[in-house]
Amino acid sequence: MTGAERLRALGLLAPAYLWLTVAVFLPLSAMAFFSFLTDVPFGDREWAFTFDNYAQALTNPTYATLLWKSLKLAFWVTVWCVVLGFPCAYILARMIKGRSREVLFLLVILPFWSNALVRVFSWAIVLRGNGVLDRAVNAVLPWDVKLNLMFSETAMVIGLVHSYLPYVILTTYLSLQAIDDTVIEAARSLGARFPRILWRLILPLAMPGLIAGAVLVFVPVVGSFMEPRLLGGRVGTTYGTLIEDQFVAVFNWPLGAALSFILLAVVLVILAAASPALRKATT
């Protein structure tokens, strides 16, 4: 690479990376800094360095309970996404061919690229007491049923699964599609039936995609706050809403920053644990 080329590459790269620095990397650093302050350092406010925010975030039983609750929520949403998404990806990748596969695949992925907030809102309409689902069920069943799903953990799980299911389908689909057909044929020629082929070949070969999908679901769900607010109502207090409150209601930014950083640490641990599989899935 000559000097001129080096300069040209630098010129092409600089704007994008400067932008990312200003908009993402500096803010994350600023947040790290803030999380050790007693108060925001704006104007003539008094501030000092402290570990109190972390102490508070880690020792306050309410915060710990909420973090645990968010982790559990993310766990169950991930489980449901994997359980529902894997067969769907399998059918799309290995049982349907040609044009109809393209169309169906797009149909499955499309909601994921449409407005998340609006989709959660649409569930609110469906699930609300005496709402569409209640009536539909009552129209079918002879006795009176009160589902009352709205403002429950179930509603939160349904809405979040709806939001993130396409992730799992997408990543799993990609790794399932990469499986060579003749490998399956070879297993059949050796006498293996479908359950064994599924267990010994398809699942292990799809695992990088499944793990990638699971991480892509788990990470944002731990930090979700909009879905729990809209679908969980009073039970919808999560670690995410706790952080939201620090910034938009309580205005305790340093505590919010510390809580955010603990969440980030959790996320990083998960990403690190899954990174071998993620690397495999992207190559």
Binding site: D180, T182, V183, E185, R188, S189, L190, G191
Partner: peptide, 19 residues
Amino acid sequence: AVEDRNIGMVFQSYALFPN
């Protein structure tokens, strides 16, 4: 079915199980 024919087959691409 294939799986009940008791055959052995070698494929052009070998089709070894990569996992």
